[in-house]
Design a protein around this nucleic acid. Sequence first.
DNA 1: CGCTTTTGACCTGCGC
DNA 2: GCGCAGGTCAAAAGCG
Length: 227
Amino acid sequence: MSQIVNNNLFEEQNHEIPTQMGFIPFQTNLTFPSLKAFNSIASSLTSDSDSTISNLTQTLLTTNPQKSRQYLSPNFGETQFLSLHRSSVNPWAILGGGTSDCFKSGKRSGLILDDHHLGISPMKMKKMKGRKKVREPRFCFKTLSIDVDVLDDGYKWRKYGQKVVKNTQHPRSYYRCTEENCGVKKRVERLAEDPRMVITTYEGRHVHTPSNHNNLYDSPSQFDNFF
DNA sequence: CGCTTTTGACCTGCGC
DNA sequence: GCGCAGGTCAAAAGCG
């Protein structure tokens, strides 16, 4: 079980709501996060524009400034925080000219800041030789979870690798969606600076419904109120 | 028995 | 060109 811990990381590093990051609160009795929202994001992150997350955040700020402030408060006790961000270093994401990064002000380490290496496998590189590189949409969630690394997002994943990343104590795990013809991958690792934080990076879009669709896909969550 | 996880080897890109 | 680091493969082991 995940424990409820306040998210102080953003408070320490960024006192403003980043323009390209969405803050998604969800109750701990819900699985991570609403699948409806998950798919909504995944399907919207397909263009070269970097505006999607920015727009979502702006929408939240515009429509519900009180709540958006609340989510940034370190005293928002009963809600576990979840952040959504897209790396500005990622060549796929950088096309929109984005510059905001939730770890920008922090030390360079871990998955986010090495992002120029992510999402493009050697095999893919090989296959793409001589062709224009086409990147799958990627986005990552940062969650606070003391003892659970892999959050239940409704899809079935098979682990295909684990790697100890330099300067980190915790290994990075690589997962692939088990559904046939679905090439979605995800990486899971804990943040070096704060092992309570789990970084989950998704790459690609599911071409099918979640395996536990009935239980989760339609379940309401606070997340849905914003997207 | 079939599926999943583990883990060492291998491949590729990048920086020096 | 070489070494390093990240990402993936695939055989073996584990598990229900």
